[in-house]
Structures are given as C-alpha cells and as structure tokens.
Design a protein around this nucleic acid. Structure first.
Lengths: 149, 149
DNA sequence: CTGCATGCAAATAGTTTGCATGACG
DNA sequence: CGTCATGCAAACTATTTGCATGCAG
C-alpha cells in the first residue's frame, strides 16, 4: 500500500525531473504501473485507466509505456507468444514464474541461482515445463566500436 | 558437420513418422534449421531457402516452423523486441548470450547456475546489461483442473 | 490417384506514427 | 502563452488464414 504509493511518487518525480508534464491520464497510467498487479498487459492498463478517464486512447498508453521503458522505470517482460506484459513496481530484471495455462505471473523470492527449477518446483508446487535464462549484453567486439547502445 | 547432418536426419525421420511429406522446400527449411547458424530469423531462413527454391513463400516457412515447434523439434527463442529467432539444432531450452548491438546470439557452456552473470562476464568478455531468467510452468491451481496445456 | 503442401493474396493483431486540438506548467 | 500530451485515424509489420493448384507417397 504505502510501498506502492512510494513507488508512484518515485515515478512521478522522475518524470518531472526529466521535464515531462503530469497529466491526469499519465498519472492514471502511472498508478496502474506502480502497482503492476499481475504484470498487466497494455490492454489491461488501458481498461483500468479508462474506468476513470474514458476518453483515454490506446496510443497514449503505448506512448507513456515507451517513455517509462526508456527511462528504466518500467520493465517489459518480453513474452512474445502472448501479449506483452509490464512491471513498473519492480522495473529491474528478475525471475518470473509463469503459468502456461492461466497466464499468472509470480515473482519468486530467490537468492541463489542453484537448482532453481528443483527449488521452485518444490516450494511453489509449480510444474516447470520450460524456462527462459537469457542474458543480454554487449559482446567484446562491440564494446570497442561503441557508438550507441 | 556430421553432427548437423545427423540432426537433419533426426528431424526428417520425426516428420516422416508423424505422417508429414518431405517436400524439397520443407527439406531446405530443415537444412537451415538443423544447423541454425546464428539462430536465424524467419526472414533469414526464407532468404536461404530461396537461394535454391526461389518460389518458396514466407507462408510456407511459417507453416513449417509452426509444425516443428509443435513437435518440439525447433526452439523459438522468443525475443519480442527484435524479430523472433529459431534454433533447430538445439531445440531444448538453454541459456543464451545476446549482444544488444550486433544481435549475435551465443550458447554459453554453463553447468552451474551460480553467479552466472559474473562468470559469463569474466569468461566471455561480454558486458551484461540485462538478463532473462523466466520459468514457464503450470501452477498448483491449474494442475488440478487440467483440460489441455 | 489422393491428400497434404505450397504459394499467392487477403485478413488479422499489436504497435507506431502524423497531425490537429487541448491542457499543463 | 508556448509546448508538450492527447486522441483519433491511418500506416506498418509480423504473422495467420483461405483457397486453388501441385506434387509426394
């Protein structure tokens, strides 16, 4: 509750610092993203925002997500199969536990990256049928001739 | 070389077993996927196949990838930002090391999942700026009322 | 021969863009 | 007040689908 509110203020401040205006629609989007219940899709965010601001357009949601993504204030989960999902509450990379059926996404509390599958299966009761373990970075070749990342 | 050829035969056999016909176009697609140099995009596969079969359509490539995906003979890497990429050589989930700049994708040899970022950074010279560590599975709730996965 | 595979074109879905209007600061 | 944000519609792109024709088995 308070933690989410703090997160909202954090995001709002960051936007203001960067010179962005705080419009009602933008604030509504921030509110949804600062909590990120269930790691919402664009459509979900759109729906929630439209409860209070029925004129809001999808384009506006996309535009704001894009800004926040670039600022590192929102994490794009990057599930290509389904709709993409977003997390503005924990905008840093972290493991996800996804239910293939109901699409539920959980953030497991994990310290060690050892025998994760086993530990996860044991502690959560999930039956793990797939995993994503991808690292994104810059290779040695590219680190030399860097122009822009 | 021989390993790739074995992989090709493996895939061909599997298709035949499932009642699929081995057309020249299909075989050409299998050849590209059995090697999967650089984890090709659909477009790359399309281009390579068209060298020998200029009439091949994108739809055919998509259709065949879909079949192989369903059979578990091709791994879809699932990078949503960029074009999707495919691996028919190692069609099982495994870590990837991606260069954000040149889009190179490497399969690092890793046994332990401990301090991976550090180990990877040290051994490969990559500067790791992002990571994906997602587990896909079935949650306890859904394991009960299972109808189809 | 018979049916699945192909290839073309049209359809679809998610996302992006252009531009005129409106509102934050 | 000036500028950036919004909202609508059109544009785009990747992928999927329908259907007539072709070819593998």
């Amino acid at each position: 509750m308070t933690a989410n509110h703090l997160r909202l203020e954090q995001m709002t401040r960051k936007l203001r610092e960067e010179g962005y205006k705080i419009t009602p629609q933008r604030l509504a989007i921030l509110e949804v993203l600062s909590v990120s219940v269930g790691h919402p899709t664009v459509e979900k965010i759109y729906e929630k925002v439209r409860v209070n601001f029925p004129t809001t357009s999808l384009a506006t949601v996309y535009k704001n997500i894009s800004i926040l993504k670039d600022m590192g204030e929102v994490l794009e989960l990057g599930f290509s199969d389904d709709n993409n999902r977003y997390d503005g509450n924990k905008p840093y990379p972290h493991p996800h536990l996804v239910c293939k059926k109901c699409k539920k996404i959980i953030d497991p509390d994990i310290e060690k990256l050892k025998d994760i599958s086993e530990v996860l299966a044991r502690e959560t009761g999930f039956k793990i049928i797939n995993q994503r373990l991808d690292f994104i970075g810059i290779c040695p070749d590219c680190q030399q001739n860097m122009t822009e990342a």
